[in-house]
């Protein structure tokens, strides 16, 4: 088990170098001079431009710039943004917020998806199933930002149940509305997945055998159906997590959540390589770890794939 985890963790190293190099290059290759853009339509003094370029190593060739960045990272210095803030501080500030949002969205949507999906499967073809299908189709076909705007206007402005935006109130409670709208985007897929895997499990021989043992439906469904049906859901979590991080950018913008999405978007617009690269790299590494976690959880749920003999 230990060696398995170690191996998976070591995989992060090539992923780290690959991701940073690639993203750094992509930012480097973006057309335009980010320093000149800082001055808007006003053309700054060339001497000042040169000095600022030198400060951010923007006057160096790509390899040198990348080298500076990597050397910094080894000293836990992820560089500074153009506004003079250490990127590591920006990361520390924004990531917990986005993580909170993502965890809440996953928790809310999965909880609902599992319950509704399970009942849809049990009542396959009945009214409940059909209504839940229509609702999930609506959810999946309406773009995230439309849902966000609708929710913001309806619950924030018209009904006044929530504050339309989050801002400083970014604790668990404050993120409820954005988390719900973000969750809506993944609910539909998760619900359909639960439903189909539950239908499949319901048809398994061991379910009939469980009934033949004299077990009641109240026991067979949670013990012999739900747990097996959850396995594909868990695998799906890793992918969902990735999708969420992307969807968070839109949601964060609309609900003014001070998370990674908005900061990253601004940094891309400003060609701030250290910020962009550090953020995306943390994304990538987080993704790798979530996958590891999911694989371990998978083993926990399904004894056939435990890693130790």
């Amino acid at each position: 088990m230990g060696s398995y985890i170690l191996r998976r963790v070591l995989q992060v190293i090539p992923v780290f170098f690959g991701a940073t190099l690639l993203i750094y290059f992509m930012v480097f290759a973006m057309p335009g001079d980010p320093i000149a853009a800082l001055f808007g339509d006003r053309v700054p003094n060339p001497a000042l431009l040169e000095a600022l370029r030198a400060q951010y190593h923007l006057d160096e060739p790509f390899v040198v710039q990348y080298f500076y960045y990597i050397m910094g990272v080894f000293q836990l210095d992820f560089g500074t943004s153009f506004s003079g803030q250490p990127v590591i501080e920006v990361l520390q500030r924004t990531f917990p917020v986005t993580l909170r949002l993502a965890v809440m969205a996953i928790a809310l949507s999965f909880l609902l998806a599992i319950v509704i999906g399970l009942f849809s499967a049990i009542f396959k073809g009945k009214l409940f199933d059909q209504v839940s299908l229509i609702v999930s189709l609506i959810f999946v076909s309406v773009p995230v930002f439309v849902i966000c705007f609708l929710a913001q206007y309806t619950f924030g402005v018209q009904l006044g149940w929530f504050s339309p935006t989050v801002g400083a109130d970014n604790g668990w409670l404050g993120l409820t509305l954005p988390a719900i709208t973000l969750g809506v985007g993944i609910y539909a897929t998760s619900m359909r997945l639960t439903r189909s895997s539950t239908i499949e499990t319901l048809g398994q021989d061991w379910v009939r055998t469980a009934y033949s043992k004299g077990l009641s439906r109240g026991r067979v469904v949670p013990v012999h159906v739900l747990r097996n049906s959850l396995i594909p859901m868990v695998t799906d979590t890793a992918t969902t997590f990735g999708i969420l991080m992307v969807g968070a950018t839109v949601t964060e913008g609309i609900f003014n959540v001070p998370g990674v999405g908005n900061t990253l978007y601004q940094a891309i617009l400003r060609h701030e390589a250290p910020t962009v690269v550090s953020f995306v790299t943390v994304f990538v590494i987080a993704y790798v770890f979530v996958n590891l976690l999911v694989d371990l959880l998978y083993g926990l749920l399904d004894p056939r794939i435990r890693y130790v003999k």
Binding site: V157, P164, T165, G167, G253, N256, N262
Partner: peptide
Amino acid sequence: IVFYADQVGAYNDLLANQ
């Protein structure tokens, strides 16, 4: 002074008197 990423959110806050 509240920093907004997107003015739509700010406008909805205004409508809600937030």
